[in-house]
Design a protein around this nucleic acid. Sequence first.
RNA 1: CGGAGCGUGGCGCAGCUUGGUAGCGCAUUUGCUUUGGGAGCAAAGGGUCGCUGGUUCAAAUCCAGUCGCUCCGACCA
Length: 581
Amino acid sequence: MISMRFSQCYIPTLKETPAEAEVISHKLLLRAGMVRKLTSGMYTYLPLGLRVLEKISKVIREEMAVAGYQEVLMPMVQPADLWKESGRWEHYGKELLRFRDRNDREYCLGPTHEEVITDLVRGELKSYRQLPVRLFQIQTKFRDEIRPRFGLMRGREFVMKDGYSFDANAVGAEKSYWECHAAYKRIFRRLGLRFRPVEADSGSIGGNFSHEFMVLADAGEDTIAFCHDCDYAANVERAEVRYQASETKGEYTCPSMERVATPGAHTVEEVSAMLGVPAAAVVKTMLFVVDGKPVAVLVRGDREVNDVKLKNVCNAQEVHLADGDTVMALTHAPVGFAGPIGLAIPVYADNELREGVDYVTGANAQDSHCMHVDLNRDAAVTAWADLRMITAQDACPRCGGHLELTRGIEVGHVFMLGCKYSDAMHATFLDENGREQTMIMGCYGIGVSRVAAAAIEQNHDEQGIVFPPAIAPADCVLLNLDPRNDVVNAMVEDLYGSLRHMGVEVLLDDREERPGVKFKDADLLGIPMQLVVGGKSLARGVVECKDRRSGQKGELPVDNLPASFSAWAERVRAGWEAQQA
RNA sequence: CGGAGCGUGGCGCAGCUUGGUAGCGCAUUUGCUUUGGGAGCAAAGGGUCGCUGGUUCAAAUCCAGUCGCUCCGACCA
C-alpha cells in the first residue's frame, strides 16, 4: 500500500473558490486539490482525484467481470474509414473532432468505440459457437461538446467505461443487455449512490431500446419521471403521455372562426391575457426544422414541445427550432403569430388537441390571432401524436398512478443496439444451418469521471465533500495535531502503521500546520473517517474519531485501538448503507 | 454558432467612467510570538495589466483587431 503522508503528497487545497467553477462538484474538486483545468473542458487529475477515478474503475471492473465482460483497450485515435463505413462520419456532426495526419489521411478522436470494436470482432468471429462475446474498456474519450460546462460533469475529454456485447440471436442479446443492466445496478449501489434506472431515448447512437442510470441530484441536467404506484421510471424526453379521449367529444359545436387583432402579443401568456381565455385554450404552434425541412408542431398553450418525440415521430436524424428568418418566411409574421391554418408545411399536432374545438391560434400574420378554431374543421393536421413533455400532473403511462418529476445526472446508459453497426459493417457469422447472420449488439457506457462529480453533487455539505466510502481517495485521514510533541508523534506513527497493516488506507496529515488548517482540510477532502491525535486527548488515553458523513464524534481508547477502530469503522459503513436504502 | 460578460503577481479582486510612478486580501519566504476549527506582529520576494496594432508627450485605462475563458440557448457518458 502506498504511503500517504500529507506533507509528501501533491494536494494543493484552496481556501477560495476559483471564479470559473459554477456547480458544487466543480468547486469542491478544485478546492480539494483533486483536479485542475488545462483548458476548456479538459482537466488534469491530481493524485487524490486520480485515486477517486481508480476506486470507481475498480468497482466497475469487478462487476463487469461478474457479468462476463473482458477488458480490452482500444486506440483513442480512429481512422475515418470505419466511421464512413458505419455512416456516422456524416451523421455525428461537429462533436466528432476530425483531423489529418502527415500523409493527409483522415482520423478522428474517439467519442465512443462502436466502429472499432465491431471491426475488431468481425475479423475473428465467424461462427455462432464463438458467441456471445462481451468486451469493455476504460478509456479517455473526446467529444467536442458544443458547450463544455460544470467541470467534470460535461467535459470534452472524459473517462468512460464502454462495454459491447455481440450475440447470435435476439434472446441472447436481451440476456446480455439485462445482465449488464443488473451489473450497473450493482455498480452504482456499491459506489454508494442514490440512483434510478430509467427508460430512455436511444439518441444518436441508435438502437431499439435503452435505459439510463440517473444519479438523483438537483444539479442534474436531465429530468426524470417516476411512478409512486409502480416501478415505471423514464427520462421525460421519452416518457409517453397517455391519451384519453374526453367523454364530451362531439357534444360541442365550435362557432365560426374569427380573426382578431392581438398587437404585440407573441407569447401564450400575452395572448391569453389579451383575449381573456386560459392558456390551455390557446394552441402553441412551434416551427421546427426536421432534417432540413420545416414542420409545424402544435401543443396546448400550457404545454412544452418534446423535440425528442418529434424526432422519433418524423423518424429523423436531427431536429431544431426554426430561427426567426425561417419563421418569417413560412408565416409571413415574426415569431409569435404562427398558426396551423393555411400553412404549406406538414403539421404535427399533440394528441391532447384531438378534440380540436374552440382554440385560439396564431393567424400567420403580424399582430393577429384566430379565435374559435376547430382544428379538425379549420386546419389540415398531417398527423396526431404524443409530442409534448409529460408533467407531474399526468398519470403514469403504465399504471395510471401518481408521477413525480425529479432531476438526475446521467452516469450510465445501456443500449440495445440491434444490428445498426453490425449490418453497416458486415459483422456476420454462420449459424447452425450454415447461413450467414448478422450479430446483434448492445453497448453500455458509464461516465467514470462524471460519476466522481455526481457523487459529490449528491454528497457534500458546507464544509466540503462527503465521499461515499467506496469512492473516497482514502478510508481514513489521521490528523497529527502536534507534530512537535514526541508522545503524540509516537502514537501517530504507531497508529498509522497498525491501520495500514489492517488494510486501511490512511492519509496521514503530518504537516507543520495549526490544528484548524488540518480540520478544515480533512472536512474538505471528504474522507469518510477522521482520527485525531492531540496532546490533550492523548493525555486522557484516547484518540478522537469523527464520521465525516454524520459529523458524529467519539473517542477510541488507546488500549486495543485496532479492535475499537474496526467496530467504529463498521458503524460508519452501516450509516452509509442506511442512508442509501 | 447566436446572446451576455470577463482577462491586472499562484488564487480572489479593486483601479478603467475622467489616460500621469500598479494596489488590496489570501497564498509564498524570513524572524519573533502563537498552537484543538483556515493565528498575530514585523519584514521580504513576485505582475512588460491576455496578445497585436493604433491614438497620445504619456495607455492597465481610449480605439481597432485577435486569442482565451465563463455564463444563457441548440449535444450526451
